[in-house]
């Protein structure tokens, strides 16, 4: 559910309008972090999340800058505004975290996920599976006379829909990456101007 909030960004650090904090609706936010790519950093983030009982729908991590040893973590989480603000503040105080950004709050962002979907079927169901694959612009990356492995990319809803359609056709297994997300527009991530991947 998109956030209906059109109030301006925080006026100063920590300042969140009371009306927002008292809103008891649950929203889904995509939060991105740039962290030092050091041993245990994922355990730090996931341990914080589980230890404090936050609801995490997706968490992905991968190195994004080899020279500066930076990784990016994308987290999709649901909660009230107060909880979302708390998640961000808690993540922000981890020592290896460079920056925390709420992509949902900061304007439009795009998020994609990749899924590998194995379907075992024969006869008419094979044709049906291939037709659905075409509609979703998925790729067939492995096939046997009794099965397909599809590769499908899109937002979480699209992948959910694809998997739902494959279920009656003989869904055997799915493997999903979780989301990678990025803000629309020209601006880079780090507020110190050093965007990851900038030659240092």
């Amino acid at each position: 559910m998109p956030h209906p909030d059109d109030t301006p960004q925080s006026l100063y650090e920590g300042m969140v309008p009371l009306a927002r904090l008292k809103d008891r609706h649950v929203y889904r936010h995509v939060i991105a972090l740039v962290v030092d790519n050091e041993t245990g950093v994922l355990a730090r983030v996931s341990g914080l999340v589980s230890g404090r009982g936050y609801n995490i729908e997706s968490l992905t991590v991968a190195e994004i800058d080899k020279d500066r040893q930076l990784s990016r973590i994308n987290i999709a989480t649901s909660g009230t505004r107060q909880v979302i603000e708390q998640v961000k503040a808690q993540l922000g105080r981890l020592v290896p975290v460079h920056e925390v950004r709420d992509l949902t709050d900061e304007g439009p962002c795009v998020a994609r996920e990749l899924a590998l979907v194995k379907v075992a079927c024969t006869g008419d169901k094979r044709a049906e599976a291939l037709k659905t694959c075409e509609i979703f612009r998925a790729n067939v990356i492995d096939t046997t006379p009794q099965s397909f492995v599809f590769e499908v990319v899109g937002d979480t809803d699209k992948i959910d829909a694809f998997i739902d359609l494959m279920r009656p056709l003989g869904l055997v297994e799915t493997s999903r990456t979780g989301i990678a997300a990025i803000a629309r527009g020209p601006a880079g991530f780090l507020s110190d101007g050093l965007s990851p991947n900038t030659p240092s």
Binding site: E13, G14, L18, L21, K22, Q82, G92, R93
Partner: peptide
């Protein structure tokens, strides 16, 4: 000094980090 202390249990009108 800890932003995560603010609005954690009680929502406040004026936070001073």
């Amino acid at each position: 000094i800890d932003p995560s202390s603010i609005n954690k249990n009680v929502v406040v009108d004026v936070p001073v980090v």
